[in-house]
Design a protein around this nucleic acid. Structure first.
Lengths: 317, 317
DNA sequence: AATATTAATAGTCTTAATCTATTAAAAGTG
DNA sequence: CACTTTTAATAGATTAAGACTATTAATATT
């Protein structure tokens, strides 16, 4: 009883014989002996229930079903090779999907440059980008929804992180504002001002930093508007609604009607870090040798990304 | 040393485990035992050089390459099934290509009806039709260029044939021709007429028949024009160039200005036969038992066509 | 008629796929 | 914390399948 099913071997053998139309030569080509080939082809025909070859002692020909089968099989074998190549490229981190979170400020500083470099090196890796605020990124990273985050420390979750940038906040003023002409600006000068600020949950740490600075200067800031994207904040500043703290890199996006001033004393600092979940979710550190492969299997894509960020930072120093 | 290569079995096993994420259940589903599955998957990973699964003693997960591999493999297995189904349908004569030759007159009688019936029953068989005159069909059938011919016997080649129709030729006359009013028409009445005839090589037998008839009636026909398609001949008759012998079924294509008259005495007969090359090209009749399968492998499509023609003829009696 | 070519057959050997039984590790439970 | 349950890996034996060599039967070709 022939229990076994059709295997790729059978198909490879069939192709060889369909192309040579000669059992002896086909067998030689395949590196097997002729009786084996005869047997295997017969087995294939039995499994299919279809006669593929018309053979006499002298001549071999494809039957009509065989002629129809051949291109199908060729396509199949070709796709098998493609699939194997694909999975091997994926294993090298040249293929796949990387889910990345980022905050608004990250988008105006390092993110574009890093992403561009990564795409240049790994053009077939799909980068799926999601704008999340820092706390949301933390949970998404822990759940595995994101694999890498560009966010603002400190964070307390058990995640790996690496600070990649730290920039001071500056004050954005409408161009006709009286403080524009003051040679040096202090926090105390802002006591009576109307503030445009982001909502607390979007960046609780920075929010606290700003609040503490004001409190130390002896006042509680009057918040007239809470909005999220920094360009929107700048827009409101231009409209004369109030003043705002924005990250220094926002200066690059110059907007008519808005001027930026640094604070002379202590200033809020916006730190940017990349954060990811440690590969050793399980007790992988109990296994001594296979550690590297475990990390690799977890995500080479991530490793490659981190490596690239490292290189990028070194080239900046 | 792992000499063997990747087989469909490995892929089937991988799919099962990728879907269950459980060695035990996947093995059960596959009808094998769990250690076998573990071993085979490990072997697949070795052959690929890629870790597909991340496994602890407790949990099984797909690695990123594994996730990418899965849909490829599913597609591959699906196409394998499709290819198998295709070749099996081809073996039943439901799929394939049949090359058929026909003469002009066949096109105006039985051919359309038979083709339509065949298409209805075997919609996926591609009928490739070629208009050839009788002698050309003979050589094309012998060389294998055509598998079936609709032509006009007799033929002397060693081909199988079956007469499917025999129709008398009628005389096509311009409507203002004096012979139109004669109650019964004889060959002798045509002695002085101008004839429009097909060239001899197109239908040597019929040509000879007509010539003999005229000779017996004591004259040699005056041929004013040799043209091929019968509708063109009718057109020339309508133009008053001469008279013509056409097959009776041409009456169906009524053309203003042309009238048809039968000959009262002996009349040329146009026989139509289907002709094909015998399946026993080799000495297949020396083998007693496997004869049917040999015929089948040669062309079931042809067999099916012949069977249908048989049915069609019986329904006509 | 003789020779060469070719696919099939017979019989043996070896590999590898599979099985059963067991182990090691991890998670849940009283 | 011990105890049970669950799960994948390991070990060893068995069997099936693939592959090899040698031979045969049939058919062209000379």
């Amino acid at each position: 009883m022939a229990t076994s099913s059709i295997e790729l071997r059978h198909l490879r053998y069939f192709v060889a014989i369909a192309q040579t139309l000669h059992f002896g030569r086909a067998a030689e080509q395949l590196g097997i002996t002729q009786p084996v080939l005869s047997d295997q082809i017969r087995r294939l025909e039995t499994l299919l229930g279809v006669q593929l070859l018309y053979r006499t002692k002298r001549v071999v020909q494809l039957t009509e079903p065989g002629r129809i089968f051949l291109p199908e099989v060729l396509r199949l074998l070709h796709q098998t090779e493609t699939a194997i190549a694909t999975v091997q490229r994926a294993a090298q981190g040249k293929l796949g999907q990387l889910k990345i979170g980022y905050t608004g400020p990250a988008l105006y500083t390092v993110l574009p440059e890093i992403l561009r470099q990564f795409r240049d090196r790994y053009p077939e890796v799909e980068l799926s980008l999601h704008e999340y605020c820092t706390p949301d990124q933390e949970t998404a990273l822990l759940s595995g929804e994101l694999q890498l985050g560009f966010l603002h420390p400190p964070i307390d979750s058990p995640l790996q992180q690496r600070e990649i940038r730290c920039e001071p906040m500056v004050v954005a003023l409408p161009e006709n504002h009286p403080l524009v002409n003051k040679p040096s600006l202090s926090i105390k000068d802002l006591a009576q001002e109307s503030f445009i600020l982001f909502p607390e949950p979007v960046g609780p740490n920075l929010y606290r930093q700003i609040m503490n600075l004001c409190t130390e200067a002896g006042f509680s800031p009057k918040i007239v508007q809470e909005v999220t994207p920094q360009p929107t904040m700048i827009g409101l500043v231009a409209a004369g609604i109030g003043i705002a703290f924005v990250s220094e890199s926002l200066k690059n996006i110059s907007r008519p009607g808005v001027l930026y001033r640094s604070l002379q004393e202590a200033t809020p600092l916006l730190k940017l870090a990349i954060v990811w979940k440690s590969a050793s979710t399980q007790a992988s550190d109990t296994l001594p040798a296979s550690n590297s492969t475990l990390t690799a299997s977890s995500s080479i894509l991530l490793d490659n990304f981190l490596k690239l960020v490292d290189e990028w930072m070194q080239s900046r120093c």
